[in-house]
């Protein structure tokens, strides 16, 4: 697991301010994501969780103030699962457009088995359910060795057993020196400290 020296932030946000539709979603938001930390971004619908995630990963480049420094490669999973319906789960992972790695067949098979898609490796993805699409996407977490994960609502459409498995995966990633930033409405049940960032009305940190 490549990780930067302890203490050096993997990602640093400096005085982020965002205004949407005349509403101040957050201002002066500054934080450092260090190795071994699990951050949960909370807030009601429309509080700016997804906007903040998109700013952190660099998809939003304008319309906000402040700066984000990204010091390590990261993995971002957004609202949409980025799974091509015409490709099989195996092809989806082998040809993935995010380009963080090149995976062999065995790696992909074991990752798919671990997310509960054993036997679905070569089925066209359009026959899979929404939850199974999300699971294909989550298999990327197992394959990738990036240390920083930015996850936007990773529990959406996942069943309770899947949620438990994912929480265990997050905890083990953090324990191994990685870092996770995620948005979620539900309380996390993980065996590590959770840094909660609540985006209330005009949150400041």
């Amino acid at each position: 697991m490549p990780s930067s020296p302890t203490g050096a932030p993997l990602l640093a946000a400096r005085s982020l301010c965002l205004e949407r539709g005349g509403r101040q979603l957050f201002r002066n938001l500054s934080f450092d994501i260090l190795a071994g930390q699990l951050w949960q971004i909370e807030g009601s619908n429309g509080a700016g969780k997804t906007s903040l995630m998109r700013i952190l990963c660099g998809l939003s480049r304008y319309g906000y103030e402040g700066s984000v420094e990204r010091h390590v490669p990261f993995l971002y999973l957004g609202h949409q699962s980025a799974v091509k319906a015409l490709l099989t789960p195996r092809e989806n992972l082998a040809f993935h457009v995010s380009g963080e790695g090149q995976y062999g067949n065995e790696q992909i098979e074991s990752a798919l088995a671990e997310v509960g898609l054993y036997g679905y490796e070569d089925v066209a993805s359009h026959t899979l359910s929404a939850g199974q699409h999300r699971r294909v996407n989550l298999a990327r977490l197992l394959l990738s060795d990036t240390s920083l994960w930015l996850l936007d609502e990773p529990f959406t459409a996942i069943d309770t057993a899947g949620v438990d498995a994912l929480q265990a995966l997050l905890a083990s990633h953090v324990a191994a020196g990685g870092a996770v930033v995620m948005t979620s409405h539900q309380a996390l049940e993980v065996a590590c400290d959770v840094h909660v960032l609540n985006l209330g009305a005009g949150a400041t940190v």
């Binding site: 998809l59 949409q80 980025a82 799974v83 091509k84 319906a85 457009v97 995010s98």
Partner: peptide
């Protein structure tokens, strides 16, 4: 389907 976001990153 969100692949484009991943491509940009």
């Amino acid at each position: 389907d969100g692949s484009l976001e991943q491509l940009l990153l």
